[in-house]
Design a protein around this nucleic acid. Sequence first.
DNA 1: GTCTATAATAGGATAGAC
DNA 2: GTCTATCCTATTATAGAC
Lengths: 213, 213
Amino acid sequence: MPASTAASAEHTSRDKILDAAEALFAKRGYAAVGLRELAELVGLGKSSLFHHFRNKAQLYAAVTARILVSIEARLVRSLATGGDPVVRLERWLDDLIDLLTENPTYARVLLRSLFEDDDLPGDLPEEIEGHRAIADMMAAVGGLLREGMGAGLFRAVHVNHFLLTLVGIIVFPFASGEFGAEVLGKDLFDATEVRRRKREVRALLRSGLVASR
Amino acid sequence: MPASTAASAEHTSRDKILDAAEALFAKRGYAAVGLRELAELVGLGKSSLFHHFRNKAQLYAAVTARILVSIEARLVRSLATGGDPVVRLERWLDDLIDLLTENPTYARVLLRSLFEDDDLPGDLPEEIEGHRAIADMMAAVGGLLREGMGAGLFRAVHVNHFLLTLVGIIVFPFASGEFGAEVLGKDLFDATEVRRRKREVRALLRSGLVASR
DNA sequence: GTCTATAATAGGATAGAC
DNA sequence: GTCTATCCTATTATAGAC
């Protein structure tokens, strides 16, 4: 297997830049990260970054697009697997939580990308790709909700509001950093806490909060 | 009523700066806002800002503290009003949603303040005050949940996880900007959509998603 | 309390040697 | 593909006149 075709484990400068940038952007956001800082983290000169990316905005868009596409790839696969809508939705939630805990930068970049639209030009190919990925995911889950409602397995919900609810329930906690850890009293990324989160989310969807009469 | 005691409607430079800064920080975040831009929005010279605030970090902390304290004031009052835990929780949710929709900057500043802790020194009085306000609120709602569970009105939930869930359900959508509007197809801040959001949140807490068997 | 002037630094980005 | 050197602009912050 020639190295030139083994793309997976390659360790190019471009990948190193993307990895370091992902960590920095997740932690502090677009505007607060300087390219000089990023360059010396990677072990390059500032100018070398511009050989790999046209400018800062494109680098940021590349970082977020890489994440959004990888999330989409895994979750669309998850949704495509069989089972009734209840099973499929719960598996999707579990898989999403697994994905976010295995990649602690993801939730923050995901939420930040919703807040930091203003900084970007809006017409970069990477932006469009990321936007499409997230829209496709939302559409797929929306379809699942509709399917479950049609089969009488879900009560009648407003699908789009429910999508916002799901993102808020799942993504927000893993992006909440210090706040989440303080509310919880523990690190949400610990394995036991992740299991608990899955259980609590399932229970909420199955029973709500108010006790049955 | 002498003007000097009528603090509510006063229009001091300090208030104007705080108002303008709140709008800018909500829209673009701490690092992306320049003091020159802020100054000319207020109609002052850049240097005049430093007469009212020691530095940018303190200004930011003052902005967030003002919001957190005002939220706390209104919601602690809401929680203190009578009714059983179910009624009180639902009123709290409605009041929080009202507060967030009447002040469109709040949700964004609130969520951003969770992400942008790194930028601040951590020991400013304003930071501590804001931190206390949010902690008190969480504690109050946590107490309400425990009370409801004790009375058999709520099922047994993990209180701290449920607090994260509540913040994710309520605050996140109103902070989600373009993304939320796109998922929804409408502006979440429209009166009809706000009403729908309240209904959907209530229904989730009362019945979950999965249809009763 | 607001201003002008200025300092000191960091920002993103480009040119051109190697 | 990486480097040094440089450009221009923006940044936060201070000093001191009015």
